[in-house]
């Protein structure tokens, strides 16, 4: 589904990604772990198409197409979804209206008509129940004044509404208490299908107790330096990153 080859990217003249290789197949869950500043959010932003990040080398192939050729909205239409580490507040647009705009924009891109209002409401109700989101919440301005946890839950709610092929969850666990973590992880798991894939980015292995990864990758200084199974996450939790730094001579 996703093939990243030798990806280099920079922002404001600074080299951040220094040769990433990553392959994700349908039905898989991958986790990327790594210390702060290693380039995890940069990688997710580059995949989603944030313009300030310049891809200088390498390629990102999604379902056979070079993603860097496309605008962020086109990547979304193709089924790429990013749950933001820091979701943006949009005062003046309610969650419901935002969701309506988003769903219909994606339908339009597929040449479909707007979703009928009752169908939309039903879907919103169903997905908000999945994430145990209060109805009142839906008529609030998008992310405005939301707690960290509410923002993250709202991101996964959007994911549930959109049913993307590839979901990238950037630090979705930060700001969540144990209950919220369980709800969010449960939501993500329910959305798993053989034809979609998930890339979980996290500092901590605790999320990975709930969303069990097939592969764990360690990112250091803009490179994936080690990959393994889910046991790698425990090892990192226990020993930190220093032993890997030594191992790879960083």
């Amino acid at each position: 589904m996703l093939k990243i080859k030798n990806l280099h990217a920079k922002v404001e003249g600074l080299k951040i990604l220094k040769g990433i290789d990553l392959e994700i197949n349908a039905g898989e869950v991958h986790a990327i772990m790594g210390p702060n500043g290693s380039g995890k959010s940069t990688l997710s932003s580059v995949i989603a198409g944030k313009e300030e990040y310049e891809v200088t080398r390498g390629e990102i192939i999604f379902e056979g197409e070079e993603l860097t050729e496309f605008d962020p909205e086109e990547r979304a239409h193709k089924g790429v979804f990013l749950s933001f580490q820091y979701p943006v507040e949009i005062p003046g647009v309610t969650v419901t209206n935002f969701m309506r705009t988003v769903i219909n924009a994606n339908r339009k891109a597929r040449g479909e008509k707007d979703m009928p209002a009752n169908e939309m409401l039903k879907k919103i109700r169903e997905k908000s129940e999945l994430l145990e989101i209060d109805r009142k919440f839906l008529s609030r301005s998008l992310n405005e004044g939301f707690s960290g946890g509410e923002k993250k839950r709202n991101e996964i709610f959007q994911m549930a509404m959109l049913e993307p092929k590839l979901a990238i969850l950037d630090e979705t666990d930060s700001g969540l208490d144990i209950d919220a973590l369980r709800i969010v992880a449960n939501g993500v798991n329910k959305l798993r299908r053989p034809d979609n894939a998930t890339l979980v980015i996290t500092h901590y292995q605790r999320l990975l107790d709930h969303i069990i990864p097939d592969f764990v990758h360690v990112m250091l200084d803009g490179k994936i330096v080690k990959s393994g199974g889910k046991e790698l996450a425990y090892e990192l939790e226990e020993k930190g990153y220093d032993w890997i730094k030594e191992e790879v001579g960083a």
Binding site: A48, G49, K50, E51, D71, P72, E73, R75, A76, H77, F81, L82, F84, P87, V88, I90, P91, G92, V93, T101, V102, A105, N106, A109, Q158, L162
Partner: peptide, 21 residues
Amino acid sequence: FYLRSRGIPLKEARALLMYAF
């Protein structure tokens, strides 16, 4: 970028932000 990453085209995303404003 947030709006576009959800599939809202640039022009509509700009309009939406202006509406919201």
